[in-house]
Amino acid sequence: MSPRFTRRALTLAALALPATARAQDYPSRPVRIVAPVAPGGSTDLIGRVLAEELNRRSLGQFFVENRPGAGSNLAYAHVATQPADGHTLLIGLDSLTVNPTLYARVEYDPVASFAPVTLMARIPHILVTHLRSPINDFAEFMRVATAEPDRLNVAVSGIGSGGHLSGAVIQHQTRARWTIVPYRGGATPINDLIAGNVDAAFVTLGAVIGHVRGGRLRALAITTPNRFPLLPDVPTVAEIALPGYDVPNWYGMLAPAGTPAPIIARLNTIINDALTEPRVRATLLDNGFEIVGGPPEVLGNLIRESVPRWATLVRAANMRAE
């Protein structure tokens, strides 16, 4: 081996030592998991279940900090500017890739501002109606929405929300049309639906799974390719109307861009391990989640592919944040 090669190898090894040492000492203080929503709901739940499991395993002190506002943009912009040391993490949702087109301006880049850790889970959206509705199944819903455009009032939890986008994809690919009734999240759209103030709602499964299983709402279809295990009688949109249709909410863990690769690898390992814990899996399944896990590249690819996909749809549907 030449002296020149030896010196270069030693230099590269020396440069790698600080990052490796930081990963071995990680975490050196409490780790903040930023949820871009208010307490309650699916995003908050998966963050708290995960933090509790990591703490139970004595892998450090992890806690959830809720930073709602501006359609989650406040949290996204905040985490993008935090030190890249693994002590501030972000629960990213599909809004991370939708908002750059939906809003006139955002203070982050969904690809360049973050380092993917793992795609933790997906959750279907579901189309539900109240029990007094004459619409009993998704085929009937589509028939009415096609024959009588805009007659049906469909609640969603906000402009550009996952439920809004799920329905927009259907309208974009078919002649079905309905009137969107946007709410500002929370339980209000579900309460209004149960009361019969709107005809239907497109929401995350976690928001209504208790009402569906309890017989208080009628489920028409879910937005993932396969039926959900706890609701085996509820068909998929793909089965009834659009083969290949797949529009879930996703939940990914991210760190600020520039976080050392050994720390990303450490986080990926401990989070994926936590997602295999039976009590974690049971809690998430009961709340409508499909656990995914896997390497950082799966989440990174999803983000890169989602940005242009949603940009095209948002522009075609002329969506604008309120």
Rank of each mutant, 00 (worst) to 15 (best):
L152P: 08
R216G: 01
V31T: 11
S28F: 14
F5R: 15
D246M: 07
P308R: 04
R122M: 06
L267Q: 06
G60S: 02
R105Y: 04
A282T: 08
V34K: 01
R218Y: 08
N318Q: 15
M253R: 11
E53G: 05
V181S: 12
T11W: 13
R213W: 01
G288P: 12
G186D: 10
N226G: 10
A201D: 06
L275A: 04
L220C: 03
I190M: 11
L119C: 04
L102K: 05
A145Y: 02
N153Y: 09
T118C: 08
A274Q: 04
E52H: 10
F138G: 00
T188K: 08
T11P: 01
D25Q: 12
L45A: 11
P100R: 07
S306D: 12
A80R: 11
V144F: 05
G158R: 11
V117I: 15
A317T: 05
H130N: 14
S2D: 07
L205I: 08
G244M: 07
L275C: 05
I170Y: 04
P256N: 10
P232T: 08
N136I: 04
P296K: 02
A19M: 02
Q171N: 09
E305N: 00
A265T: 05
N66C: 07
A155I: 07
A187V: 11
A257I: 02
E305G: 00
L12W: 09
G167Q: 03
I180Q: 14
N318T: 06
A261P: 06
L254I: 02
M1W: 07
A35R: 06
A261F: 07
D273C: 02
A187L: 14
I190W: 01
P36F: 07
D85A: 04
H125M: 10
Y103I: 07
V31S: 10
P225Y: 06
P83L: 13
P308M: 05
I303R: 00
V181K: 09
G293K: 10
P27W: 07
M120Y: 03
A115L: 08
I291N: 12
I123T: 09
R48F: 05
S42H: 04
E52S: 13
Y26V: 00
R132S: 14
P124Y: 07
G288N: 14
A255K: 15
P30S: 10
L15V: 09
V203I: 08
A70S: 15
R22E: 14
A187Y: 15
A257E: 05
G294I: 03
A115Q: 14
T146E: 09
I135G: 08
N55M: 01
F62G: 01
I46H: 08
G47V: 07
A207H: 10
F114D: 00
S161G: 04
V106H: 04
H172S: 12
